[in-house]
Simulated assay, not measured.
Amino acid sequence: MLTLVIGNKNYSSWSLRPFLVLRTFGVAFDEVRILLDTPHFQQDVGKWAPNLRVPALHDDGLVIWDSLAICEYANEQYLDGRGWPAETAARAQARSAAAEMHSGFTALRKQCPMNMRRTPDNYRPDAEAQRDIDRIQAIWRELKQTHGQGGDFLCGAFSIVDAMYAPVVSRFLSYGVEMDDTARAFADAIQSLPAWQEWRDAGFAEIEYLPDTEKFRA
């Protein structure tokens, strides 16, 4: 049995990505959740991940860390390649988009961290983060127009690239980001996934640690 080590479901965007891939493709796994920002987080996560971060995947003594690496491992070992689009050009561009998400958009990450419980208010990102937002929606439009006409997701059927951008959907919703038609349709598709709904509901219900008070709250 695989074991996926994750952080808070309300906050851990990197943990959400492999969770969606494994759940949506029906790969069975056990789950270990380690609350972020607790005084003993590094001690706890150190038992599972060599980089002292979440997520990490354990498979019969093998440890894979980093969200995208976990998704790629699952694709190779358990999905027979179904985690990426079957067509070569779609697969290449989906991988490019996933890699750009993996390494970029730092302004959006910093200014709009994932918080699934958050509701939109008057907060607006600055020009740098808005450039990230515009670029992300351009990627979604390009993938959808070029490769995604056969289904609800960016390249038609759900794939790893959709999981990589799923936390952005959460950010856009939580911070009231203006979305074009393609982005709204993609957000609806992500929210329709049972795995997303399972994660969201658990995130709403989980306890969290408050560093300022050194206490936990529901």
Rank of each mutant, 00 (worst) to 15 (best):
P113K: 05
I133R: 03
D134H: 13
R131Q: 15
L108W: 07
R117I: 04
A90G: 02
P120L: 07
A107Y: 15
M101S: 08
A90R: 00
I136R: 00
A90D: 00
D134S: 13
F105T: 03
N122S: 13
A94V: 03
N122L: 09
I139N: 01
L108E: 03
A127M: 13
A107K: 13
E100V: 07
R124D: 04
R95D: 06
R141K: 12
Q137G: 01
K110I: 02
I133M: 07
A97F: 01
Y123V: 04
Q93I: 01
A98N: 03
A92D: 06
A99G: 10
A92C: 08
C112F: 03
Q111N: 04
G104T: 04
M114C: 08
R124P: 01
T146L: 12
N115Y: 10
N122R: 10
A127C: 06
E128V: 15
R131I: 08
E100M: 11
A127I: 10
A89E: 12
S103V: 10
Q137P: 02
A127G: 05
A99N: 14
A138F: 11
P120M: 01
R135C: 05
A129R: 06
R141M: 07
R117W: 07
P120E: 06
A98Y: 00
E100S: 09
K144V: 00
A129Q: 06
A107I: 09
F105W: 14
L108Y: 07
R95V: 06
R118C: 10
D126G: 12
E128F: 10
R135Q: 13
L143V: 01
A94H: 01
N115K: 12
C112L: 14
E128A: 15
N115L: 08
M116H: 05
M101T: 06
T146A: 15
Y123T: 04
A97E: 00
A127S: 15
A92K: 05
H102G: 04
I136F: 02
R135E: 09
L143Q: 00
R117D: 10
R118G: 11
W140V: 03
A94K: 01
M114I: 13
K110P: 00
I133W: 04
A97Y: 05
H102E: 13
